[in-house]
Amino acid sequence: MEPLRQWQIGFKDVGSADIEPEGKQQHRLEIFNVVDQGSSYWLHAEVRHDFTAETVIEALVHAMQRWGVPQQITLDRDPRFVGSPQGSDFCSALLRFGSCLNIDMYVCDPQHPEQNAYVERFHRTLKQECLQVERPSTAGQTQQALTTFETFYNHERPHQGRALLDRPPAEQLRETSPLPALPTAVDPLAWLHHEPQQVFRRRVDAAGRIKLDLKRYYVGKAWRGQLITVHLNAAEATLVLLGEGQILKVLPVPAWSKSALPFAEYVQQIQEQARAEHRLRSLQERRQRVRALSSS
């Protein structure tokens, strides 16, 4: 495969670092890594105590500002990548972001880390040859260790991969054509073109509303307590509400704009969606802890 076109992303804990408290929560220090599948080149790394879906999007933007937009990104099922386990009917903010940039977002199957093998292999190397040697205890120390190791890993260290044959990854990039730059504007509904034709069943609540993808839609009090069907028409970006064989309403899929947004504005809006997903996941986790305590 041609270098730079396919990326793999993932998190690596910094086991020697202090855990940073925030209220009742404790945050591990993590490194978000981007590795090129075609050359094993370590493209990007960011160190934070507070990685969320929102800050992952920010980190990916930084990587693309440096390298351009890849054709594919492979990722595991970390909730910060794929969203909340319950409550969201469509793909996560990160997956929408990638789709709107026309990136093939490949989500690994459950319990199959070999599908993200390049970043997994890199994480073993990073742990054995950098983190366990330097044993950083702060974000600053970790970043300093990574900066030094990046030069060695990419430009000096012989790589065992079949495509490299004991050469450093940088040698694979010498004659590689650059990736397309980030767009100046983004269609916020472009992700729908990658969605299948979905059908949902919803029961109308006492206020005459249904809930779909973290939002509520008014159907009518005459339908209270009844099941209705919602069809996603991706081609027209609409939700078709059906009850007893008749069309009740045709609603637009919620979007911040029906036309393309400047890239920076689009990123702000998709990060807002990511924050909503993070709040939902935090609420679900709190409820699970409460249930576990009450049943013990």
Rank of each mutant, 00 (worst) to 15 (best):
Q141T: 04
Q141C: 08
Q141K: 07
T142Y: 04
T142K: 04
Q143V: 04
Q143D: 13
Q143A: 11
Q144L: 07
Q144W: 05
Q144V: 07
Q144Y: 03
Q144R: 11
Q144E: 12
A145I: 05
A145Y: 01
A145C: 03
A145F: 03
A145P: 00
L146D: 09
L146W: 03
L146V: 12
L146G: 09
L146N: 09
L146A: 07
T147C: 07
T147G: 04
T147E: 15
T147K: 11
T147M: 15
T148F: 14
T148W: 08
T148G: 12
F149S: 03
F149R: 02
F149M: 10
F149C: 06
F149V: 01
F149K: 06
E150S: 12
E150W: 11
E150M: 11
E150H: 14
E150R: 14
T151V: 09
T151F: 13
T151N: 06
F152A: 02
F152H: 05
F152I: 07
F152G: 00
F152E: 04
F152D: 10
Y153Q: 06
Y153H: 12
Y153W: 11
Y153G: 07
N154S: 13
N154C: 12
H155F: 13
E156Q: 13
E156L: 12
R157E: 04
R157S: 10
R157A: 09
P158Y: 01
P158Q: 03
P158L: 05
P158T: 02
H159S: 04
H159W: 03
Q160M: 02
Q160S: 15
Q160I: 02
Q160G: 07
Q160A: 14
Q160L: 15
G161T: 04
G161D: 15
G161R: 11
G161M: 01
R162T: 08
R162C: 08
R162K: 10
R162G: 01
R162M: 09
A163F: 13
A163P: 00
A163R: 15
A163H: 09
A163G: 00
L164A: 06
L165P: 00
D166N: 12
D166H: 11
R167F: 03
R167H: 15
R167P: 00
P168T: 03
P168D: 04
P168Y: 10
P168E: 12
P168K: 04
P169A: 08
P169N: 03
P169L: 11
P169S: 08
A170M: 05
A170P: 00
E171M: 05
Q172E: 08
Q172A: 15
Q172K: 14
L173V: 07
L173S: 07
R174Q: 13
E175H: 07
E175F: 13
E175L: 02
E175D: 11
T176I: 00
T176C: 14
T176K: 07
T176A: 15
S177N: 12
S177H: 04
S177D: 10
S177E: 08
